[in-house]
Design a protein around this nucleic acid. Structure first.
Lengths: 247, 247
DNA sequence: GCAGCGTAAACTGTATGCAATTTTCCCAGG
DNA sequence: CCTGGGAAAATTGCATACAGTTTACGCTGC
């Protein structure tokens, strides 16, 4: 009997956080919540994104069904959707496995991410409202304390929030979807870089460049700074990535 | 008893064409093909992309199950994946419906598409192999005949191929995925523009600008030309789009 | 001791069944 | 004629069942 302790949901599709115990909230009175599959998608995505399940690991349907106390049917649906999203891979008559990308594909995802972040920063520089700019700046400046204290986890939470602001500031729903989706798929490979020495300060400085450019409505600089920021993370992460399929 | 006549599969996930009759290829000997769901995803995606099913139309599970001669279980899985891809929308206890985006969301998708095409063109200009450049040019020049003949359908096939070449030329798997996915989601809204007078010639000229820039390895010009090309399609299409939910 | 093989266990793919919810439609009331 | 309410029909959400495939494991032969 496994117990889950996922407490923080980096939600793929709707981007809000929530507590989720091992047993999904299926009260007897509300037997048909109608979102059991949706909850499972989030829960499993969390397991993958947080690293509780490593790339390459098997996701067998029966275990998951027992773990979440549902039948295999919703589990299968959830796995199908995760496959469509790209977080897991399936072959006929075999267990689903957490997607394990090749070095090359990983590099392509980071490059795509850099492009997307660049677009978001550029559009944010052009389109953010006064309020959005103010909030971006305020939150960024507040994070300086976290850097000085070396509060890794808190800074990471801030970091996620910071980037989400940039994505939203672009005022383009579809770009938001694309960048969010790509971020989720990269998440399993980005944890490596959290512990590098001096990472927090460097991240802060790079954020600073982005914020300054956005506030000046300097689209070109914002874009370039955001691109460079991702490239830094990429460099730090790729070296940690284990190579995928031993062909 | 409905009969399908989908003959050309603009496949979302793997991008290859295939004939698909009303009854999926489930031979008795190969009862467990293992890919029934996958085939259904493609088949339904085709229905949507080709316009056989219009945005807003209901996809009820029982009808689809009868139509494809399978049970509701694989139908449900397929709908779930199409939902994850974004081609259909689902609410608990309601039928899935073909995604009907608002004018605003549609505009955001076209803008995102323009950005992505721009990226592909830029990267293609930088990275295409000699062979790839030669093929791009040759195919583009061959299409001039179609323009003169006014062969709309053939030109459309060429157009799809042309853009796919640019996506591949970028040599970035993830960007390819994003742009392919976005194209699929835009497909239902792009058919409107096919019949506009002078469209073929204009398209050809715009392709020409892209090809010239790519051949010169002029990344900036290629990117700009590709962006402008999509913007043209966007202008032509958005006016045709019916507005989504009457809030 | 180890490789090859065959059987059993485990697991996936799909069909079917049932409870819950939504939708439809008919009829009374205004 | 139109509107509102309510019951029946239609449909979704999930569980269970079963057939077929893959995987694990032990056994035999070398």
């Amino acid at each position: 009997m496994l117990t889950m302790t996922v407490t923080h949901c980096i939600c793929i599709q709707c981007n809000f956080n929530q507590i989720r115990p091992v047993k999904l909230a299926r009260k007897k009175e509300v037997i048909r919540s109608g979102t059991t599959v949706e909850q499972m998608v989030r829960a499993i995505a969390d397991l993958i994104i947080t690293g509780a399940m490593q790339p390459g690991e098997r996701l067998d349907e029966i275990s998951l069904a027992n773990r979440f106390e549902v039948s295999r049917t919703p589990v299968r649906e959830a796995l199908g959707q995760l496959c469509a999203i790209g977080l897991v891979e399936r072959e006929p008559n075999k267990s689903a496995v957490v997607t394990n990308v090749s070095q090359q594909h990983l590099a392509s995802m980071f490059e795509a991410m850099a492009e997307l972040e660049g677009i978001c920063a550029r559009l944010s520089a052009e389109r953010m409202t006064v309020d959005e700019r103010r909030m971006l700046e305020a939150e960024h400046k507040a994070s300086a304390r976290l850097v000085h204290r070396g509060a890794e986890d808190e800074y990471e939470a801030h970091n996620t929030e910071f980037h989400t602001r940039l994505y939203r500031g672009a005022h383009n729903d579809h770009v938001f979807e694309l960048v969010t989706q790509t971020r989720a798929r990269l998440a399993p490979f980005r944890r490596a870089q959290f512990r590098l020495p001096g990472r927090l300060l460097r991240s802060y400085e790079e954020h600073d460049a982005i914020v300054l450019a956005v506030l000046r409505a300097d689209a070109v600089s914002a874009s370039r700074a955001a691109y460079a920021h991702v490239a830094t993370v990429s460099d730090a992460s790729i070296v940690f990535a284990r190579d995928a399929e031993p062909a």
